[in-house]
């Protein structure tokens, strides 16, 4: 064992590096989420510029298109720049600013309805917390990180499921009208091409009930074993975007980043280093 060279970095630095890589998985997912609909957001910005609409419900600052543009730019730049940062204080302050920027977009006239910013905001809140714990050994930090990540993903599913517990969703009528009648997307096009009118309506009912059941089940990811919870979340999130609308990747990617955390298998870096020494 004496002939083995020491690793080039100390255990403390190795721990921090390992934790930083987990943080950056979620950061990268937030960046992808924010950039996914960039062309669509630019298009909306141009429309608002050409045909401005103001709703006095929002305070002037949260109606301003300049504020929306700047905040989006800050959020996107922060999530990109933080990917290259090694400084704990920069990561902590940057994540905190990211939370503020994303929740600001969540209450702005131009973006309040886009769930992308809500999901990214919650994911950034996780990043903010995690960035304050980068020096803690990964094997003790990781279970907490995964539990919080699963709790946030569960929250998003619970929020979706509870609002669907209505006769209109249970009967499938809402999804029938929103998607099944005329949504031009491969999944619904296939169902339409193989169904009669009655069959299509029944398919909407079955699909709607499956959605409610799946979302309710995913509201309890935090109770499942870590890796199973992550795999279930990833499969369901991927399924949502693949079968409904590719633009939904802007909503689910940050949640997928959180879900990946539970798949990580931490190594005892300090212990390994001691053995090698």
């Amino acid at each position: 064992m004496n002939d083995v060279a020491l690793p080039p970095i100390s255990p403390a630095l190795a721990i921090e590096k390992n934790n930083r890589s987990l943080l950056k998985v979620v950061m990268a997912a937030i960046l992808v989420s924010l950039l996914w609909k960039l062309t669509f957001l630019i298009q909306l910005d141009r429309i608002q510029q050409a045909m401005p609409l103001q709703d006095p419900f929002f305070p002037a600052v949260f109606r301003s298109q300049t504020v929306a543009r700047t905040t989006y730019l800050i959020a996107t730049s922060l999530s990109a720049l933080l990917l290259f940062s090694k400084s704990r204080s920069i990561l902590t302050i940057g994540s905190m600013l990211l939370v503020v920027a994303l929740f600001s977009l969540n209450i702005h006239q131009a973006s309040f309805n886009d769930v992308t910013f809500l999901c990214c905001g919650w994911s950034a809140a996780w990043c903010w917390w995690f960035s304050t714990r980068l020096d803690e050994p990964t094997e003790s930090l990781h279970p907490r990180a995964a539990w919080l990540a699963h709790a946030i993903v569960s929250l998003v599913f619970i929020g979706g499921a509870v609002g669907k517990l209505t006769p209109e969703y249970w009967s499938g009528q809402v999804l029938y009208e929103v998607y099944f009648i005329d949504r031009d997307f491969w999944f619904y096009n296939i169902i339409r091409s193989y169904s009669t009118a009655d069959g299509l309506r029944n398919a909407a009912t079955m699909h709607s009930r499956m959605v409610i059941a799946t979302e309710l089940a995913c509201g309890f990811l935090w109770l499942l074993p870590m890796r199973i919870a992550s795999l279930v979340a990833l499969i369901v999130l991927l399924g949502i975007a693949m079968t409904n609308n590719f633009l939904l990747f802007s909503v689910i990617t940050s949640l997928m980043g959180l879900s990946i955390i539970g798949l990580h298998q931490p190594k005892n870096i300090a212990h390994q280093h001691h053995d090698l020494a």
Partner: peptide, 29 residues
């Protein structure tokens, strides 16, 4: 079991910010 471990770890590691984030998630849910 994971939830109990989470709560115990928050206390053991004095990670009050994790406990706070968990509480905010719970209140929102």
């Amino acid at each position: 079991k994971r939830t109990i471990t989470f709560l115990k770890d928050c206390t053991r590691q004095r990670d009050w910010s994790a406990a706070l984030l968990g509480l905010v998630v719970l209140a929102t849910a």
